[in-house]
């Protein structure tokens, strides 16, 4: 537990010093949302209809910005080796890394998305549904993104390759997650969809860190 906390604190400290890594995805999302009315017909009805979908897409892509290079610094500086040579299980330390990134890389994006969608005219009741859906889906999104980052570590141009690997895997989450807002707007029950997202996230949190650690273990020799 101490090792987890120490590692978590370290990652937060680094993120705090590299604020652009935290801010870039947020700015990215704001830009995508601002471009939507320019790309589409600027009618309030149409924009309100596509708002939730755009928020989902902006979040998925925004998370890839920093996510695809999640372990790059640790790898480049050799810290990854130290992690795997620690008496504490490497999975615990990797989990600390992921938890810190969820807090600083995902949570701000998730909190911003309903606001961004409301900017396009999404009713506030639907925005709450969007927020809950994204919150429930975010751990699964995070784990898949981290897995992509770990697998492409050490390959040049990994930043471009990882999203290509990860985004197709996120299709089920996108289908269920983006569907929630539509169903909710139609007044249909959406509890089932929430549970499904939560289940996918639970599964990812349970098995994901093991898979990410195994993928990182392959990249320890340079």
């Amino acid at each position: 537990m101490n090792a987890f906390l120490a590692s978590f604190e370290r990652e937060c400290r680094i993120a705090w010093r590299q604020k652009m890594d935290v801010l870039n995805p947020l700015i990215f999302m704001a830009i995508i949302i601002s471009l939507a009315p320019l790309a589409l017909e600027p009618s309030p009805r149409l924009l309100a209809e596509v708002a939730a979908g755009f928020a989902w897409l902006a979040l998925l892509l925004g998370a890839q910005l920093t996510g695809s290079a999640l372990f790059a610094d640790d790898w480049r500086t050799g810290w990854l080796k130290q992690i795997f040579l620690s008496p504490s299980p490497a999975t615990v330390l990797v989990l600390a890394r992921l938890a810190a990134w969820w807090l600083l890389g995902f949570l701000p994006l998730v909190l911003l998305s309903p606001l961004a969608a409301m900017m396009l005219g999404l009713p506030s009741a639907s925005a709450m549904a969007l927020l809950l859906a994204l919150l429930l889906a975010s751990p699964a999104l995070l784990i898949f993104t981290a897995l992509g980052a770990a697998l492409t570590l050490g390959i040049g141009r990994a930043a471009a390759l990882a999203p290509l690997l990860v985004l197709p895997l996120l299709v089920p989450l996108l289908i269920f997650g983006a569907g929630i807002v539509r169903l909710h707007a139609d007044g249909l029950p959406v509890d089932g969809q929430y549970w499904l997202l939560a289940a996918l996230s639970m599964l990812s949190i349970t098995l994901g860190p093991l898979a990410v650690t195994a993928a990182l273990r392959l990249q320890l020799v340079d």
Binding site: R10, I14, Q18, T77, G78, W79, Q82, P87
Partner: peptide
């Protein structure tokens, strides 16, 4: 203790922090 050829010093961390983090890994 393994000292790799590439240095495990994150550019934004200070020497004090690097040492503290490294020892924290050993508990």
């Amino acid at each position: 203790f393994f000292l790799p050829h590439k240095l495990p010093a994150h550019p934004v961390l200070t020497p004090v922090e690097v040492l503290r983090d490294s020892l924290a890994l050993k508990g």
